[in-house]
Nucleic acid binder design. Structure first.
Lengths: 133, 133
DNA sequence: TAACGCATTGTTATATTATAACATTATTAT
DNA sequence: ATAATAATGTTATAATATAACAATGCGTTA
């Protein structure tokens, strides 16, 4: 299997490393605060790294929350088909990895004749823990 | 006993009216600028009206763009199941009204056992016009 | 009808999220 | 080696959104 190799720059590695270790979505300025000891001083340094990491699919942006989370799907190369479940109580976010869903959405066409190259889906509800409270 | 609001307040009417006439998503501060002649002076007045209008489903937020668009679906009461197509070139946004899609997504369950009460889906691509350029 | 509850309004200030602009350095391709 | 491209560093500022508090309007009910 041929896999595209990604060389990450110093800042990109620092940011990705931090986001991967979090296991939950992080805000850009929280990332900034936490990587300042590694030399990243300004918001732009974080945002530029995030932009690139989102572009290559290593990180996804949770649009409704303005947060960033590491991709759990190891073979996710580009971020063109994303789905998340979001608990509206504890804000826990989980990436949904469901081939039926992704097939359905990737092939979706409406009557406008527009063919979609990308989608982002966010489900909201209460997670098991919060439902039982 | 709390009664559900039947009528829109003055500010809510002004904001909804403006957004409905636009036929395209608007940014909050663009709305603010345009309703200043009607007496709304501060961002909060616009955001508060938008919050309420989104809550009751008269307006939807395009999360990936931080813009607000009037709901075209006349019988849309609450905004708990939304889907949009977004042209990445001209930024034209269309609300997708497809009963198969909404049924599929409203009934979707993943293996987490989480039942979703709400979703928002954004498709991206090139609209017909932009594809032929 | 008076008083309570609650949504809405008005206002100032501030928090949060994100990008512009420009100079410099590193990496890659030829 | 050189040119093209990507990444970095830095300061400043734009764009988006909320906090806090006082006041007003309006329906409910005691």
């Amino acid at each position: 299997m041929v896999q595209k190799q990604e060389y990450l720059s110093k800042n990109q590695k620092i940011v990705l490393d931090h986001v991967e270790k979090a296991n939950q979505p992080l805000k850009a300025y929280s990332i900034l605060f936490n990587v300042q000891k590694k030399g990243l001083k300004a918001p732009l340094q974080v945002y530029r790294a995030l932009d690139k990491l989102v572009e290559i699919g290593k990180i996804h942006k949770i649009e409704s929350r303005n947060t960033f989370v590491a991709c759990k799907n190891s073979n996710c190369v580009v971020s063109n088909a994303t789905a998340f479940s979001i608990c509206e109580s504890c804000e826990k976010v989980t990436e949904i990895n469901n081939s039926k869903l992704s097939k359905y959405l990737s092939n979706f066409e409406d009557n406008s004749g527009m063919k979609y190259s990308k989608y982002n889906l966010e489900f909201f509800g209460l997670c098991k823990k919060c439902k039982n409270k």
